[in-house]
């Protein structure tokens, strides 16, 4: 007994700290190898600048205020586009999940539109909106709409009908039934939609900003390419990666908070 205690206790204390670090081993190793390869001249700096050069470029842009401004512009576009597209997708998902009439009326149309790759609309969008903000917001919103629509709809349709019957037996009104049974039941699926949508959000924004923009991270990368500033190009790409990871982490935290009842989130 005492032997088991003395073995298992330090283990359980050590594990979380190792877990936190373990995910950073691979990225850090890649950066280290990359730095060595650049310094030794194995990789020419015209192909890929050393990590230290990228950091330096980032520092310069940070001091000039350009970096913060561009990140802010991109972040703003991403969030507003996400809110608009996600909001509309959620609304349609709710309507079509709850009402047969609404589903019959709009679902076929939405499924047809879904099969058009939204990035194929860029030429049309530029003709409509120019390279205005609304062009980027439109594209992001359109891209984000479908994963949220589909997963909200799926979530609502797959709520356990036995629970809905139970709610009715116990005298829940329609509003209560939605708030206490249908919405919480659909939530795990809605989160899947949100995480898909976040990925599409960044992808759409990058493409839109590199093709038609006068500010933002994508624009910064394209400008840098014009002037052969390869360190800035790499920096922009890394910042995209970081922002994407950040958005994903944020949705995970939200998921953890709202789905604490779910067996999958009760491990720790």
């Amino acid at each position: 007994m005492s032997l088991i205690d003395s073995v298992s206790l330090p283990r359980s204390f050590r594990l979380p700290r190792v877990d936190g670090l373990i995910q950073w081993i691979v990225p850090l190793a890649i950066i280290a190898i990359w730095q060595v390869a650049s310094v030794t001249g194995f990789v020419p700096t015209r192909v890929l600048p050393a990590p230290s050069d990228v950091v330096l470029a980032g520092w310069k842009l940070l001091l000039s205020g350009e970096l913060v401004r561009n990140i802010w512009v991109s972040f703003w576009r991403a969030s507003i586009g996400f809110l608009i597209g996600g909001g509309i997708g959620f609304a349609f998902g709710l309507a079509n999940g709850l009402s047969q009439l609404s589903a019959k009326l709009t679902d076929t149309t939405l499924q047809m539109v879904r099969n058009v790759p939204h990035l194929a609309l860029i030429p049309l969008v530029i003709l409509w909106f120019g390279i205005d903000e609304s062009a980027k917001l439109f594209l992001v919103a359109l891209g984000v709409f479908f994963p949220i629509y589909l997963n909200t709809l799926h979530g609502i349709r797959t709520v356990d009908p036995q629970l809905i019957e139970m709610g009715r037996i116990y005298g829940m009104s329609d509003g209560e039934l939605f708030r206490r049974v249908i919405f919480p039941g659909a939530l795990p699926s809605i989160f899947v939609g949100i995480r898909f949508a976040l990925g599409i959000m960044w992808l759409t924004l990058i493409v839109a900003e590199t093709i038609a923009a006068s500010s933002g991270l994508g624009y910064m990368a394209m400008q840098a390419r014009e002037f052969m500033l390869i360190d800035v190009v790499v920096l922009s790409i890394l910042i995209y990666a970081l922002l994407g990871k950040l958005a994903d982490s944020a949705s995970r935290v939200l998921e953890r908070l709202t789905l604490s009842w779910h067996p999958a989130f009760q491990k720790r």
């Binding site: 036995q162 629970l163 139970m166 206490r180 049974v181 919480p184 039941g185 789905l259 009842w261 779910h262």
Partner: peptide
């Protein structure tokens, strides 16, 4: 009362 408990998992 049913064969399944039909409890709300999120409550």
């Amino acid at each position: 009362m049913f064969q399944e408990p039909r409890l709300l998992p999120w409550a």
